[in-house]
Write a protein that binds this DNA or RNA. Structure first.
Lengths: 109, 109
DNA sequence: CCATCTACTCAGCGTTACTCAGTACCGGTA
DNA sequence: TACCGGTACTGAGTAACGCTGAGTAGATGG
């Protein structure tokens, strides 16, 4: 199942992270930890960081460096207006795909 | 939205095609046409064929060459037992992801 | 002073879908 | 006959994304 999850996450993980950030600002380590709690056990450490760099470069998030009590300073990310727009697009795309899949599943059995 | 769809299809398109084949055997051109009807307008011709080669190599489908009335012979694909197992796995992975996403969407708004 | 937890970085890789072009067979039309 | 459009599949090269695995670095506690 791990392999399938890896491939399925392509394109959706980005949406997942942006959706998290639409609730509240967060930093990389926090997001990774949250994902693990939710059952995304197999998401690699580096994956989330790389993703955050990408969405930052595309202007979907702003970064704020905040000193941490423990360890190096945190990079706290928050959603921009462009990010919010993109997230809406993401939900539309997701809904379309989800509907088709659900339909297929019902037909199949 | 096209770009997002492209990435989101990685890992799911395979499941979609196998799900189609679980209903009935079909050939590449037919599958492509069906997908376009369903609204997957931006799926490229070659994509489905490449996918079918991959799943064949992994033993998820059997191939049967059938002469066509118009044009070259069709390669008709049907799901194997292994393919059926894999499809079940796919649905499990999908359900997991779908549940998490739905939860996030509700929290977000 | 070393282990552990926090927090982020980076190079290289594999998988997947796309692009774009090509092959080939058939029916109909001019 | 010559050509065109629809059917049906193939193949080379490209980009994006997530993974692997290793590394840097600060703070705390035994």
């Amino acid at each position: 199942m791990v392999r399938q999850m890896t491939e399925m996450l392509k394109g959706t993980l980005e949406g997942v992270v942006l959706a998290i950030l639409s609730g509240k600002s967060a930093y990389g380590y926090e997001i990774t930890a949250w994902l693990r709690e939710q059952g995304f056990a197999d998401i690699a450490e580096g994956t989330v960081y790389a993703l955050l760099v990408r969405v930052e470069q595309r202007g979907f998030v702003d970064v704020d460096r905040v000193p941490s009590e423990k360890g190096p300073p945190r990079k706290v990310y928050s959603l921009t207006a462009a990010g919010r727009d993109y997230l809406e697009d993401f939900w539309r795309t997701w809904s379309f795909l989800s509907d088709r899949l659900e339909q297929l599943r019902q037909e199949g059995n």
